[in-house]
Write a protein that binds this DNA or RNA. Structure first.
Length: 156
DNA sequence: GCCAACGTTGGC
DNA sequence: GCCAACGTTGGC
């Protein structure tokens, strides 16, 4: 395995929250339903088993990083794309020619204190985070320094 | 609930 | 292959 990398995964907690992940069998879930090419490219090509994940609640009160997770399966085709009964079918993607990819993640720990977007914006060392450069993408790379700062702010 | 940002679609 | 229209994300 290559050296672990760091990521931030966004989710709307009304759709799927960190508590939902922690309540899963084995605290593990597929991260399916990504239908954005930039995020897909990360999932397919770069997110690897062992990588660490910041779990971020978007459109929440407040919007914040709430916990950490670890990737337990590298990218593989998202089979919900060709399931017409899934929440996010895409008939253009097929088992023979998959368009969309997912990974499996396992919840690790809830942060003692959620790190809010407002706090991140107020922290000079976090101004270069990818989340500010590419809005509307649900998967973002995080550098180790950012990871360490956010975990420190979260009391982990 | 509003609306800005921006990715995606589709007409030409 | 351009670009206007449209749809979605996501902060506020």
């Amino acid at each position: 395995m290559a050296e672990s990398k760091y990521w931030l995964f966004k989710s709307e907690p009304t759709a799927y929250s960190f508590a939902d992940l922690m309540g899963e069998q084995g605290r593990t879930s597929e991260w399916d339903g990504v239908r954005n090419y930039q995020a897909r490219n990360f999932l397919r090509d770069e997110v690897e088993e062992g990588d660490k994940v910041l779990f971020y609640h978007s459109s929440a009160k407040p919007t914040a990083v709430v916990g950490t997770a670890v990737v337990v399966r590298s990218g593989y085709p998202d089979d919900t794309a060709w399931d017409p009964n899934s929440d996010h079918p895409d008939p253009k993607s097929t088992p023979e020619k998959p368009i969309w990819y997912m990974v499996d993640i396992k919840g690790e720990a809830e942060l003692p204190h959620p790190v809010t977007l407002a706090q991140i914006k107020a922290t000079p060392a976090l101004q270069e985070m990818s989340i500010f450069k590419r809005p509307r993408v649900s998967i973002h790379p995080v550098v180790k320094e950012e990871w360490d700062i956010i975990l420190g702010m979260g009391g982990a």
